[in-house]
């Protein structure tokens, strides 16, 4: 495949996963089994790299997808929004095996974006007056009180896109987009799993969602879009 030959960013999955160090903070895209980088997650499980802090919306299902990282004892902590689809998270937390930092979903997305665009913190209305607000600085603007949320920066982001060109420009597919373009901006090392690699110039510049400046490594996935 010519596109593959001309792509400096393309790596084998194990080679890409080998770049992730023990104890890393890892952003992982996806929402409820749509848009999670399945091959990269599988590779991370096989690698056994542990002490990870996984930053994602959810943690898949028990022993499935991202859930497998927890079953494998590779997780030190979780920062995310919704673990009700995987009851093993609450169990591991209750047993003191992992820490969990729950963040409202919109605040989580914006905190990741903030990290990616050089904003250290921001104020938001979400969660004011709730348990989530405990320990967070508050400030009143106009008539309303807001919570201070710090940016959520990571060492690595594992994301999923539909197509990449040889430079690493990315386009997405339907609701598999979700957190992926945001996470692509917020880590020192960004690895994107894609279904298809196309020659440079083939993607319509108007349709590119993630410009290649954000993408370090590309891997070919299983084609689940």
């Amino acid at each position: 495949m010519d596109a593959a030959k001309n792509c400096r960013k393309l790596k084998a999955i194990d080679e890409a996963i080998g770049m992730i160090k023990k104890g890393s903070r890892v952003l992982i895209g996806g929402f409820g089994n749509a848009g999670d980088p399945k091959k990269l997650i599988e590779g991370l499980c096989i690698s056994g790299t542990d002490e990870l802090v996984v930053m994602s919306n959810d943690l898949g299902s028990p022993n499935e997808g991202l859930g497998k990282l927890l079953s494998n004892n590779q997780v030190r902590g979780l920062i995310g929004t919704y673990y009700n689809w995987n009851p093993e998270v609450a169990m591991a937390y209750n047993e003191g095996k992992i820490f969990v930092e729950l963040v409202p979903q919109g605040t989580f997305a914006e905190a990741v974006r903030a990290a990616g665009v050089g904003i250290p913190a921001f104020y938001t209305l979400s969660g004011v007056g709730t348990e989530i607000a405990k320990g967070k600085e508050e400030k009143t603007f106009g008539e309303k009180t807001y919570l201070l949320q710090e940016a959520l920066k990571a060492d690595v982001a594992l994301i999923k896109a539909h197509k990449a060109d040889v430079l690493g420009n990315l386009v997405y597919y339907k609701t598999a987009r979700n957190f992926n373009p945001v996470m692509a901006m917020a880590a020192d090392l960004v690895i994107a799993e894609v279904d298809e690699l196309v020659p440079g110039g083939e993607l319509d510049p108007e349709s590119i969602v993630t410009p290649h400046i954000f993408v370090d490594v590309l891997v070919l996935g299983g084609g689940d879009r």
Partner: peptide, 16 residues
């Protein structure tokens, strides 16, 4: 009850 851990988008939705 110790069985759930998740807030999702609920807080953002009611506030926003």
């Amino acid at each position: 009850n110790g069985k759930q851990l998740g807030v999702g988008g609920a807080m953002d939705l009611v506030a926003g």
